[in-house]
Amino acid sequence: MSEARIPAPLLALAGAGLLLFILPLAGLMLRAPWDQVGGALLAPETGTALGLSLFCSLTATAVALALGIPLALVLARTTGTLRSVLRALTTLPMVLPPVVGGVALLLAFGRRGLIGAPLHDAFGIQVPFTTAAAVIAETFVAMPFLVIAVEGGLRALDRRYEEAARALGASGWKVFLRVTLPLLRPAIFSGAVLCWARALGEFGATITFAGNLPGRTQTVPLAVYIALETRPQAAIVLSLILLAVSLAILIGLRDRWLGV
C-alpha cells in the first residue's frame, strides 16, 4: 500500500473497535444451533415475525420519505432561531431513549391521548397495539436519519440549478420534481437505507406503544427478546435470520450506494 502509514496506537485502537463488532457476531455464529436453523426457518412463527418486520420497516421508510423530504426542505431553507428549534425537534427521537418515545406516543395516540381520545370517540379508531402503531413507532424513531441525510444533501446542492430552472419558466412544483429531487437522489438513497435499517431494528418504542402481539405487532427484535426468556436457541436462530436479511440487503444495495 502506498498510503501514508497510520501510527501504531491508532491502528491498535481501530483494531479494538473492529473487535467490538466482530466478537458478538462471532459469538452468534459459533453458538448458533445450526442443526435447528432449518426447522426454525420453516416454523410459521418465524415467517410471521419476519414478514411483519419487513412490512413495518418498509412502510415506515415509505412514510418517512413522504414526510421527511418536505421536512428536510423546510429545515434547509429556514434560518435563525426557527431553524434551531425545528432541527432540535426533528432530531429529538435520535437521542431520546426509544422506550420514552413509546410512552410519549401512547400519551399522544393512546385511547386517552391528545389525538387518540377524539379519534376513539369520533370514529372508534384505536391506534395503540395495532400494526399501524408498530409502523408509527418505527417511523418516529427512524425518520430523523432520513431528514438529516436529505437536509445535508440540500445544503450541499448548488442552488443555481433551481434558479436556472425557475428562469426557464418552471413552477415551484416542477423545479422540485424535475430538478431538486433527482439531484438529491444520492442523499435520499443513503438516508432511506439508514432509516430502514433503524426501523428494522426498532424495539423499545414498538414494544411500549404497539405491544408484543404475535402476527400483529411482534416484529423479529421483539420475538428475539421474548424467545430469549423461554427458548434461547430459537432467539439465536431468529437473530441470525435478521442478520442475514440485513446483510443481504446492504450488500445488494452496495453498488448503488457507492456508485452514485
Binding site: 443555481r160 425557475r166 428562469a167 426557464l168 419558466g169 413552477s171 433527482p182 437522489r185
Partner: peptide
C-alpha cells in the same frame, strides 16, 4: 422569476446533470 420571461446564462453552464442535452433544452 418563472413568469418574467428572462433568460439567465451562468458563468459555468449549470446544465442539469441528470438530463440529456436534448432534455435540458426541452426543459
Amino acid at each position: 422569476t418563472e413568469r418574467r420571461r428572462v433568460g439567465l446564462v451562468f458563468q459555468d453552464h449549470v446544465l442539469f446533470p441528470h438530463m440529456s442535452v436534448l432534455q435540458n433544452v426541452a426543459f
